[in-house]
Write a protein that binds this DNA or RNA. Structure first.
Lengths: 158, 158
DNA sequence: CTAGTTTATTTGACGCGGCAACTACTTCCG
DNA sequence: CGGAAGTAGTTGCCGCGTCAAATAAACTAG
């Protein structure tokens, strides 16, 4: 692992720009949501996932993978959301290990209230700045990058 | 606040994919660096910034803005790096309020050891997955998105 | 039926980052 | 000179996320 082929000039330029986006865009989205609605992105995502399901109800583990988060984190997020009356938790009838999180009316209302501001922020920070050709291009690129774990850990043998 | 012009279908597709990248790519990069070198991305960035300066030396506030981080965070990061002997801190001779952080030999060695694995990860997760045309496209797109604060807070009056 | 394994979720300890308060130095202005 | 205002950096408190351990229920064999 002496000279692991550095990046080309083009790649370095691209990487610098991408790194900026990776760092600053989530922060900007998060802070809008936090300021505007008192929700973190992760909280918002959880509410969205629940709102899209029939019965506004999902198992914790499904919810965790849908929201791309760890189970322990999800557990704490849902605990907070429950404390705020945005969701309820109940044992699953069929599998008593599982827990079903259900979006409450209050939670749905919260989501409905929060969504427009969030969407507006996404529009302002992303789509207002891109041509429609770039949007298509971005879709392909983002899809190509969207599964880091696929063959990421080749060398992490131990 | 009824129908605040939602996203078009294309935009929604793009956003879904982009959101995945925004969420998963930093995590994948961070975890490689952490596992491989015991450094967080922020630590790594600080070391990189210092290594690029003459004398491997920078004021805390310059370092903070170069690394796009808050002063308080930078203060803690540098404190950790100092404890690990990767940097030293000393009062600036000209302005006794300021603190100069300097990369040590050990710190430079650490960086040199950590860089190849990090670069390899970037290559694996990003550039190996894109055509060179996509790299150019990505550069434009990322640049367009790279300054969230420019006109982000229009409505955050108060 | 029962011991062992796997699956689902929670929790305790710990470290980190944000915010605001605080110290210390410098600069500005009379 | 002397005090107000600004600048540089650090720190206490708090909430959050991670890791690993704990709990509990469900399969799986024997």
């Amino acid at each position: 692992m002496h000279e692991p082929e550095w990046l080309t000039a083009d790649e370095l330029t691209a990487w610098t720009a991408l790194a900026g986006v990776l760092f600053l865009l989530p922060a900007a989205l998060d802070s809008q949501l936090q300021r505007d609605s008192g929700l973190a992105m992760a909280d918002y995502m959880v509410l969205v996932m629940l709102s899209e399901r029939d019965g506004h109800c999902m198992r914790m583990s499904d919810l965790a993978s849908s929201a791309s988060t760890s189970q322990s984190r999800l557990s704490r997020i849902v605990a907070r959301l429950e404390a705020a009356d945005y969701v309820t938790r109940e044992m699953a009838p069929d599998d008593r290990r599982a827990v079903l999180a259900t979006l409450t009316e209050t939670g749905l209302a919260k989501l409905v209230a929060a969504a427009p501001g969030h969407v507006a922020q996404v529009r302002r920070l992303v789509f207002d700045r891109l041509t429609s050709a770039q949007v298509l291009s971005l879709t392909d690129i983002a899809r190509a990058l969207a599964h880091p774990d696929d063959h990421a850990n080749c060398e992490l043998s131990t």
